[in-house]
Each structure stands twice: as C-alpha cells, then as structure tokens.
Design a protein around this nucleic acid. Structure first.
Length: 563
RNA sequence: UGGGGGAUCGUUCAAUGGUAGGACAACGGACUCUGACUCCGUGAAUAGAGGUUCGAAUCCUCUUCCCCCAGCCA
C-alpha cells in the first residue's frame, strides 16, 4: 500500500471542520513558511504534507512563503532548494510563491499604525538591558524608561531608524503590552531591530528588519491565511500573534494559529543547527548526502516522494512529543518500492563460480521477469555462462543446518537459471581464503524443478563474469548509533555510526543495469533497493546507492544462532 | 519556581460517556525460483489515587512525570 490519501481526522482537521460548520471561515487557506536559511528535512516534509494536504482536502489553497525577515544566513540557494524540494514532494502552490521580504513596506506601515495607537515605542535600551528589564519566570519585568515617549517622538525616531541614522543595536521598536505578563513574550516584545546586513533579495534597502512575531501573523493576514499551522514551541507566542492581528487587521478573516508536535526521528537529527554543522564539519558530504534526513538527501538516496508522503500520513498529527522509529520510514520506502521497482541481479561481494560441466564459450540468454508479481512489467534477457559471480555470503564451508545456500555438496537454485551443486571450494594456498567454487549444473532444471523430485530450498543471485558491469556501490545506514543523538548533553559527534557509509568496489551488476537512470529504484534481488547516484556516477563507472535493504529474516536467525 | 502544553501497547496515531482499535516493531506459522512480498496467528496499553455515572481513556478533584517560554533567531 503506497496510498497517502487517507486523511482520517486529526485534531487540526477537527478544528477546521468546526470553523467551517460555524461559518467562521468559508474557505481554507494555509501556508508553508520556511526560512530560507537551510535545506528542508523530513520534519519539514511533515509540515508540507499537512499544509498542502489540508488545502487540497478542503478545496482551498496553500501558499509557499519564504519567511525571510532575518537576512543573516538567508540566501537564494536555500530558496531554490526549498522550491525544488516542495515541488519534488508533489505539491503545487500555483503562482503563490510569496516572500515576507516583499511585505516589508506594509509591515513598516503596520508598525507606524501601532505607534500612532500608542502601542509601540522606540526603546534605547541595549540588548543586555532589555534582558535585565524583562524579568524572569517568577518575577515581573520592569518598564523601560523609554516606554512613555510621545507618539510624535516615536514616529520620528522610528522613521530615523529606518533611514539609517542610528547604529546597529542602538534602538529597537517594541510593542507596549505588559511587562508583568506571565507570557514572557508579551513583556513589550521587540518588533523591529536595526541590522545593517544586506538582504539576499532587498540588498541594502532596509537597515531595520521586523521580528518573527510581528511579521509572521501579519504576513498570514495579508495573504488571507485562515489556519496558520505551526509547531508546538510557538504555543507560547499565540497570545502575541492574536494581539497584533486583533489590533491591526480590520477586514477579512483573521488567521488562527494552530500548533502541532514536530517530528522527531530515531537515529538521526532534525535540528537545522545540527544539520548545518554536519555539513560544515564535513561529517557528511553536503546537504544532499544520502545519509542526511534532508529532502535533497532522501531524494538522492532514492526515496520516492510517494513514500515520504505515505510516511507523513502514517505517523499522524498530534500534540504529543514523539520519537518515531526510522523503521516506519523504511517500511514506507520498501512498501512503495516493492510495487514499482524493477528487479535485477547484482553481486556486491563477489565470489567466482566455475560450472565445470557447462560448455566452454557457451552463452545462453535466459529470460527473467522484471517483477515477479507483475507480468505486465515484462521480461529481460540475462546472459549465463560457465563462469559466474555469486555473493560471498551465499557460501559457507561448514554451515549450520538451516543455511539454505551453497556449501560443499549442497545444491541451490541460481535465480532465473539452473540448479547447481557445489563440488568443492578452491583456496588460496597461502592465505587459506576461498577464491573460487567449482560447481556442476543440472541442465534439466531451467524453468523446471529437478525431475527426481528433490527439493531445492535455496535460491541465490548471480552474474556472468564476462557480461557483468563493474560498479561502485554505497551501502548507507543510520547516521547515528543511538536513537536520540541529541538526548543527554554531550556532543552528537560522539555517536556517529562508523558504518553509516560502506563503499563496495568492484561490484558486478547484470548488463541491463547499464540502462539505469538516477532516481529510479531497482530491487537488487535478495539485497535491497538501489538507485544510480545522480552525482558521482560516471560513464563506464556507475555508482549505486542502497536506498534500503530488504528485510532479512536470515540475518535474525544467524544472529540468534551466534548468541 | 510563574505561565503555556502533553501523558493510551516497545513506538506512533485512533476511540469525542457505550466491545480500547490500526500501523510499525516483536514473536510463531503457511507460502515461495528473492530467507523478499503475501497470508494466517500470538503477545502487548488508558501515568497514579479518589469521585460522578447503569456505564469513564473520555467528565470532576488531587498527585506524579515529560516538553516549551526569560534571542535585537524563527
């Protein structure tokens, strides 16, 4: 099942249903409002699916808005990556790509209005003083000595702030609310600061920038957003959100903020700060490293947009803090790929096999289905010859009873080909390493079970040595080796999984994989899902990423046996 | 510590006064030219204590635990 369209009610949809029923709103408008100072990750994907999913379900609209009110760290590179990622996830915002930075003039006017109402003032306290005046959780704050400037003076000062008369940090505009409020955010919050940092879109147009609490709610209102969905940490800010909106928005439906719990995923991190650090410290190879939980990383890894949407639907939406196990994500990826991925054979850790009774120089083109459950996906031809590669793991010199693979004297089915019997293993005289298997085949067993009725339990994959395509294969695993790398203090870097990337070379792929395209997942039978790497593949030297391994119940059995 | 939120199988989401259910994970079995997929089955939860009610995860009271807020970040 790869359906991501089951949108059974969550508490947000309940609220919307109620707002609709009571006539509070007559249509639904949402928005996805990233700040372009980093790449989107799977946590953002949850929000994207929520916002766009709700808009689609209610026949409404969802805007894509860059929340670019702090020029430090923001860039066009991030804007472009965000646009590409949301699009790739399968969502469409029509012509409604908006930028908070396009609202700077309107926002400035709102601030002026607030000053005129006597509800905002220019404060000359510096950052440290403002903090001291703010009070603590248990003690109320004190009023700024600049709190009661006249409207005229505030108007004049704010205009001069805008035109660059004052140095950075020397003054701020504050809302005049309540220095004793138990909501810290209501204690005369700063709404404009002076910051001479060029804006990636506005250049040096502005030296003052609005703060989130001021800009976000008003941007929502300007866009006609009805339901402003954000994460739980903004719950404390909701009174301030409403305070601005009530005062400054007179017409139309006022936006309503609803908070939900952000996604946490085990064995990885979804903190923008940490993700940036992983990139900067070269712990990973860029934002799109296939181990990254970024949308770009998952895309390069080979995850499908359908699987990510399905994941977002399956995990649900609530207000509980959560830590979703990555196995859920992996399940969604397998579930989708199992349906769509063509099958192929590839040997990752090759061991040579010589079929002693197979004619020298003979090549048969054997027929293989591209998907055992879907005949409509067709068949392909696979060359078979006297010399093959099989997986080293598929041979044991002295195997336990439950091992259904090759061992001296044992028979297995070669997938899509013959039953072979291992006669002996050839070892390197010096090292004792097994370098080759000598086998015989049963010519009657192509597309047939053995005629004498003997049961062949094992089936292994293989590739003809002369026809194989050499490739570089990268096995990816979780980035961290503990479920919560940011759990109890310490450095997350101490918990990196040393096996998060394993490079295998040379691996041998069946010939048909020469036609593989990046982004298209293949199932390498008995191994997992793989796709051609979009960046590092070269003509003549393909690079394949392992998207996710197949479930491996033998590994469990083997593990138990060894314990 | 003031305030804002939250507690349901191992994890996650449901149940909106009427049989606590699904998914993932785990375990057992069947099937199998992928030890995959699929199918069948098993175990597994209402934070605690009181109260209201014929009946409480749900309503009330108290308690406990967890998260968030004292950036001129978002």
């Amino acid at each position: 099942m790869s359906g991501d369209d089951h949108t059974s009610g969550d508490f947000i949809r309940d609220i919307i249903d109620e707002d609709l029923r009571l006539g509070k709103v007559d249509s639904v408008v949402t928005r996805f409002p990233p700040e372009p100072n980093g790449y989107l990750h799977v946590g953002h994907a949850k929000s994207v699916c929520l916002n766009f999913g709700i808009a689609a379900q209610y026949g409404g609209r969802c805007n894509l808005r860059m929340d670019d009110t702090d020029p430090a760290g923001e860039s066009m590179e991030y804007v472009e990556s965000i646009i590409g990622d949301v699009k790739w996830l399968g969502f469409d915002w029509g012509d409604r790509l908006y930028f908070a930075s396009d609202y700077f003039e309107a926002l400035y006017d709102f601030a002026v209005e607030l000053i005129k109402r006597g509800e905002a003032y220019v404060c000359d306290l510096d950052a440290e003083q403002i903090r001291e005046y703010r009070g603590t959780f248990t003690e109320p704050g004190r009023e700024s000595p600049w709190r009661n400037r006249s409207v005229e003076e505030n108007l004049d000062l704010f205009a001069r702030m805008r035109w660059g008369e004052f140095p950075d940090g020397s003054r701020v505009l504050r809302a005049k609310i309540d220095m004793a409020s138990p909501y810290i955010v209501m204690r005369d919050p700063v709404i404009y600061r002076i910051k001479r940092e060029p804006h990636y879109r506005r250049g040096g147009d502005w030296v003052i920038y609005p703060m989130y609490d001021f800009a976000h709610c008003l941007s929502d209102a300007l866009e006609g957003v009805t339901h402003s969905i954000c994460t739980l940490e903004f719950e404390n800010n909701r009174p301030l959100y409403d305070w601005f909106v009530e005062r400054l928005i007179k017409k139309g439906t006022r936006p309503r903020q609803i908070e939900f719990a952000r996604l946490n995923l085990s064995y990885t991190v979804l903190s923008k700060r940490v993700l940036i650090e992983l990139v900067r410290r070269n712990i990973v190879n860029g934002w799109d490293d296939p181990r990254m939980p970024t949308v770009a990383g998952m895309r390069r890894r080979g995850f499908t947009p359908e699987s990510i949407r399905s994941f977002c639907a399956v995990i649900g939406v609530a207000k509980n803090d959560n830590l979703v196990d990555v196995s859920v994500l992996e399940h969604c990826v397998r579930d989708d790929l199992n349906e769509r991925a063509p099958r192929a054979m590839a040997v990752l850790r090759p061991l040579k096999v010589v079929i002693e009774n197979y004619p020298e120089g003979k090549v048969e083109e054997l027929k293989a289905p591209n998907h055992p459950g879907k005949p409509e996906m067709g068949t392909r031809r696979i060359p078979f010859s006297k010399e093959l590669y099989v997986e080293r793991d598929d041979f044991m010199e002295d195997p336990p009873g439950k091992f259904h693979r090759l061992a001296p004297g044992r028979e297995v089915r070669l997938r899509n080909a013959y039953v072979i019997r291992c006669e002996r293993a050839v070892k390197d005289e010096d090292t004792g390493e097994i370098v080759e298997l000598r086998c015989t085949y049963d010519p009657e067993t192509l597309e047939n079970p053995p005629s004498d009725g003997r049961k062949i339990k094992g089936v292994i994959h293989w590739v003809s040595t002369d026809h194989a395509v050499a490739a570089d294969v990268r096995l990816y695993d979780r980035l961290f080796d503990i479920p919560e790398p940011l759990g109890e203090g310490g450095d997350f870097a101490d918990h990196l999984n040393p096996e998060s990337l394993i490079r295998l070379f040379p691996c041998f792929l069946e010939r048909s994989l020469n036609e593989a395209k990046p982004g298209v997942g293949y199932q390498f039978e008995r191994l997992g899902y793989f796709c051609l790497d979009s960046k590092d593949s070269k003509v003549g030297m393909p690079v394949f990423n392992r998207i996710v391994p197949l479930r491996d119940s033998w590994a469990k059995i083997a593990l138990k046996g060894s314990q």
